[in-house]
């Protein structure tokens, strides 16, 4: 374990993902995340000078569809899956803060 990730950093990432952990759990996660970064560092150490960068395992580009309207879902069916509904809309708790 190289300790690339501190407990505070693990806590920060957890907060961004809206997850709550105990200190013991954070220490364990920090160690695991560090191991992932160690592995990335191993890959990074390889000489890839002659290899073109790939953004995707599939050798595909420009996969698109025509701009044609397809039927949408039935609204009642959609809203039936929501915990709370009001006036044809999803009802959510008051939002603290503003949209990014």
């Amino acid at each position: 374990m190289s300790g690339r990730i501190t407990r505070d950093e693990a806590a920060h990432v957890a907060r961004l993902a809206r997850l709550r952990f105990s200190d013991e759990e954070l220490d364990e996660l920090a160690a695991q995340l560090s191991a992932v970064l160690d592995h990335a560092a191993d890959v990074e150490a390889l000489d890839v000078t002659d290899i073109a960068p790939t953004s995707h395992p599939h050798p595909l580009v420009n996969v698109t569809r025509a701009d044609e309207v397809r039927p949408s879902l039935d609204r009642d069916e959609v809203l039936a899956q929501a915990p709370s509904v009001d006036d044809g809309q999803f009802r959510v708790p008051p939002i603290l803060g503003e949209a990014p």
């Binding site: 309207v69 397809r70 949408s72 609204r75 809203l79």
Partner: peptide, 25 residues
């Protein structure tokens, strides 16, 4: 005519949540 990643209509002023599908939800 449609949204960026699905075939739902791109139309302003429709009844709420009528142009939705698994992708845009």
């Amino acid at each position: 005519a449609t949204k960026l990643f699905c075939g739902c209509a791109n139309r302003f002023g429709d009844e709420p949540n009528t142009n939705v599908c698994p992708v845009c939800l």
